[in-house]
Design a protein around this nucleic acid. Structure first.
Lengths: 204, 204
DNA sequence: ACCTGAACACCGTTCAAGT
DNA sequence: ACCTGAACACCGTTCAAGT
């Protein structure tokens, strides 16, 4: 009897998890950036669950996005960890390589770049994930700056904004890879530039 | 009697024009980027007109935005005309100065940077305005490239995307002037860089 | 413990009815 | 010729009712 009392909820949980997975599968396909946007109700409908079910699993769109992106976010963070161990001479290209991956990641789903820019009081899970990415970017940037590969007058949040901006462009035109790569090239060249032009310290 | 027949519609038109102006006044204030977003119905309510009235004057949000921005857009285009006459040595700084103004202009109202990026079949008036800006930017860019002030491997639509991207950041954080100026600095330094790094011609 | 689906407040947009 | 405001189809979100 004790086992039965355990079994029943376990089956329920299995059912619940199946619902969760079906929602994620539908959302992964429907939110993918080339496929245009879709309402959350429509996601629920396609997944064959009630609207309420979707909203209990994922209280808002951000939560759903975070779940969709979770694994790749983690992979990106561990990759950053690895790149921090690279020889000092490669600190610059390590940063640039990682930023290129980051742009792809952020641009994968609609609306993520906007979350990246908003340094909101991180209540949502997606904000937390963005914060982890921030940390990784900051470490890679600092190292690249210390080795002289990247201009010293660039703050971490400025780098994040630059990445968010380019990710947003990719979000708007997901099929124009060459275009986005060109923007990245310009930006990276701008990062390499040593700053002879003085920026007013008071403005910081 | 002939005069009366003319007078009556003229009064109507005056009334209509007053309505139009009240809508614009409300929208100008409510759509200004620090003031957050507002629904079109709410604009109509605040202007004291019916929803239908608003939608006949401005068939969609873009039309309303275009009307709001029209004068400044024109000013920007004539300014570009003037800057094209500047000595060749100043062609680079002329471009950079103008781009800085453009960012302020595009970021003034929510959603304009997205329109700038979308090279849609220009049905809306706002698209037409963006196209005029495109033309001006292209001319200034070409001249700056010919004088060697700006890297030659940059296409006009790539420049527009870069500007749109930075405008979008400003749109997201309208009160962070120093931040946005830093991004512009990086971008402009990237534009100045001559391209020793070869970009694959096949990708273009 | 989990799910359903009607319901709510809102959005942009349309259109019959008025003057 | 111009305006009004109810109406429509939609959105994200909630919640009473079910199993």
């Amino acid at each position: 009897m004790v086992e039965l009392a355990e079994t029943a909820p376990r089956q329920l949980r299995a059912h619940a998890r199946r619902n969760r997975d079906r929602i994620l599968a539908v959302a992964r396909d429907a939110f993918a950036n080339r496929n245009g946007d879709i309402s959350l109700n429509e996601v629920a409908r396609r997944a064959g669950v009630g609207t309420g079910t979707l909203f209990r699993h994922f209280p808002n769109r951000d939560a759903l996005l975070e779940a969709l992106m979770h694994d790749r976010t983690e992979a990106l963070c561990t990759e950053a960890e690895r790149l921090l161990g690279v020889p000092a001479d490669d600190a610059g290209s390590a940063l640039f390589e990682w930023l290129t991956d980051l742009v792809d990641h952020v641009a994968a789903y609609q609306g993520v770049s906007a979350v990246l820019l908003a340094e909101q009081d991180a209540d949502s899970a997606l904000h937390a994930a963005c914060h982890a990415v921030d940390q990784a970017a900051t470490s890679l940037l600092r190292r690249a700056q210390q080795t002289g590969a990247v201009r010293a007058d660039l703050a971490p949040d400025e780098l994040i904004s630059l990445i968010g901006a380019i990710s947003w462009v990719k979000e708007q035109a997901p099929d124009r890879d060459a275009h986005v790569r060109a923007l990245l090239t310009v930006m990276i060249d701008g990062l390499r530039t040593s700053p002879p032009r003085t920026r007013s310290a008071s403005a910081r």
